[in-house]
Amino acid sequence: MESLFFKKSRSPSEAAAEVIDIDVTPVMNVFIILIPFLISMAVFTHLSIIEFSLPPNVGVGLDEAAGKPKLKLTIVVAKKYLAISHGENLLDSIPVNGNEYEELYKKLLARRETADIRDELVVAVADAIPFQQVINVMDRCRDAGFEKVGLSSAPEEAERL
């Protein structure tokens, strides 16, 4: 009977043990507003561009001072090999074996030292080559220091191989 009229007093340890709930309602309100806004502004795929040109004459540039044609390096992209040529001279031939792009990069770095034109070259591609392979070759050319890339069609003998 007495317990009905007297409040049960709690010891200090019991009061400290009581869990204090944080009111997260305002935080949730902020999240509900912020997250749809950020979702609308999020960019999940990053796009970029590669600029290139169609060379008026494949592999030939004019050295106005000397009056002689200045030759650009040409990379021939065929199904079974990648070839680096300078005018009529074949400099390197790289078989397509899974490591061709790394090999191409190293060869280009070496050939760039002795090339007449060091920032420009031509990529001549066979008709059946998928576009991704063309992009891979252009990436390696850019990595090797050739900022300007011209796209052209490969000679007929490259089409047959």
Binding site: H46, S48, I49, S53, L54
Partner: peptide
């Protein structure tokens, strides 16, 4: 005469 190709980064 000026071409660019869109690629995925």
């Amino acid at each position: 005469v000026d071409f660019s190709v869109l690629v995925l980064k």
